[in-house]
């Protein structure tokens, strides 16, 4: 019993923040999602409308677009690109050639640079790089005759998603790569030697020996990248403002637009609850995984 009391003291600060920052807003949003609360009629309060907001949501064609953008572009494409490039880069950094010339450490250091660049700065500098007038990419395109007209990367519907994915990938790739590199370095050398003795070439060693060993960290990184991008507001909002039009509107920006532009707080809450529910499902998978793999002895 004495132990329980001491543990409680240790958890007080954390529980305080969790309660006010996560539990209270969730309860508030669940309640609001059943009302027609409007930003411009806040004093009037909201009337109980039952499931109307949720029904509106599934029948709204804009929601279909928002849902597709969030799951397909932002999450599936975004995460796939990051994981693939992260793996390739980790193998490159860990290659015998770079080790031989003692370049692994210096490149690992350089890799921290995009990560240490605040995301807001990442968006600003990439908007300059992708700018139709002053951006270096368009200067190269014009100079070497790759295209005749400069491309408005963040306003042209055929380029805007790849551009956003590029910005996010650049900023978040280092963490993924370093995690994979750490996992790659922890592959026991006896297994690799054994494979080499059996005549496996470098590619075979990578695919059949090293990659299987990295599966746990790949799964964890897939889940973590999913949380970080599915919920992300800043990258899309600052890169394109959900535009052109609402072409790149995602769930986080739609929650914002519905609440603060259209004033439909109730609808916005319903959307937020849908978001949180989807993420909780992923969250529980993630939780079971980390507890089973890393923290088994704790419970």
């Amino acid at each position: 019993m004495k132990d329980n009391k001491f543990v409680f003291y240790l958890l007080i600060p954390t529980l305080f923040f969790i309660t006010f920052f996560y539990v209270y807003p969730t309860v508030y949003n669940i309640f609001n999602s059943f009302t027609d609360l409007n930003l411009f009629k806040l004093r009037k309060g909201g009337n109980w409308v039952g499931l109307d907001n949720y029904i509106d949501l599934v029948t709204d064609p804009e929601f279909a677009r928002v849902f597709f953008n969030t799951t397909f572009w932002l999450t599936i494409v975004g995460v796939f690109v990051r994981i693939t490039l992260g793996l390739l880069l980790a193998f490159l950094l860990n290659s015998d050639t770079l080790k031989k010339y003692r370049l692994t450490n210096i490149f690992q250091l350089l890799l921290l640079i995009p990560w240490a660049t605040p995301s807001i700065v990442a968006v600003v500098v990439w908007r300059m790089i992708l700018d139709p007038q002053v951006g270096i990419i368009n200067q190269i395109i014009i100079k070497y005759g790759i295209g005749k007209e400069p491309i408005a990367f963040l306003a042209d519907t055929s380029f805007v998603w790849p551009s956003i994915i590029t910005i996010i990938t650049w900023n978040t790739l280092p963490l993924v790569t370093l995690t994979f590199l750490a996992s790659l370095k922890s592959v026991p050398s006896e297994i690799i030697d054994a494979a080499r003795v059996d005549g496996a070439n470098k590619l075979q060693q990578a695919i059949y020996v090293k990659l299987p060993h990295m599966v746990p960290s790949i799964i964890i990184m897939v889940l973590m990248s999913t949380f970080w991008t599915f919920n992300n507001f800043v990258f899309v909002w600052l890169s394109t403002g959900a535009g052109p039009g609402t072409f790149t509107n995602v769930m986080a920006t739609e929650v914002y637009l519905k609440a603060f532009v259209d004033g439909r707080m109730g609808y916005s809450s319903a959307l937020g609850i849908v978001m949180a529910t989807i993420m909780t499902v992923f969250g529980i998978i993630y939780l079971r995984l980390i507890i089973k793999r890393n923290l088994k002895e704790l419970f």
Binding site: Y24, G283, I291
Partner: peptide, 21 residues
């Protein structure tokens, strides 16, 4: 396990829905 799990789920929480409350 319940308290640890609840805290960890904070990682998956969409910040945008916290703004209004």
């Amino acid at each position: 396990i319940f308290s640890f799990g609840s805290i960890m789920l904070g990682q998956t929480f969409p910040w945008i829905i916290l703004v209004t409350p």
